[in-house]
Amino acid sequence: MNRRNFLSWGTAGMAALCSAVGVSFGAVVRFLVPSVFYGPPQSFKIGNPGDFPYGPPTFLADEKIFVFRDRERGFAVASAVCTHLGCTVAYFQDDREFHCPCHGSVFSPTGAVLHGPAPQSLNWFEVTLTRDGQLRVDKDKVVPPTYRLMV
């Protein structure tokens, strides 16, 4: 085998080896990304409009959302997950503020950050009415805080 042959076969071999390693690495990463998430669904029904009282918001613990119902303006759904480190915020009716227990972030009634380390305001999710008359929340659809569903 002469030098030219050795180098060209060697280069081809190294290229093949590197691509094999690269593809295998990609396959491993893809394997680790779940194809199906078994966590709670992002879009779900929360019940009939009549289930929710006017006044203070209803906290749904499993879904981690607050459901607001206002006589004039209708329904709105806010996320209860603090945008800082994922803790669950609490709503205080007296001062109409959300407080995060972890690092003391405080959010206004519209979800805007008033104090603390939270980098952005709380999310509001789209809420719609299904054909069977139930409310459906879609956590993948973030809406502005002014969004309301009139029923």
Binding site: D62, K64, P101
Partner: peptide, 9 residues
């Protein structure tokens, strides 16, 4: 309990 964050966490 994912719904209740201890204070402080």
């Amino acid at each position: 309990n994912p719904a209740v964050t201890p204070n402080p966490a």
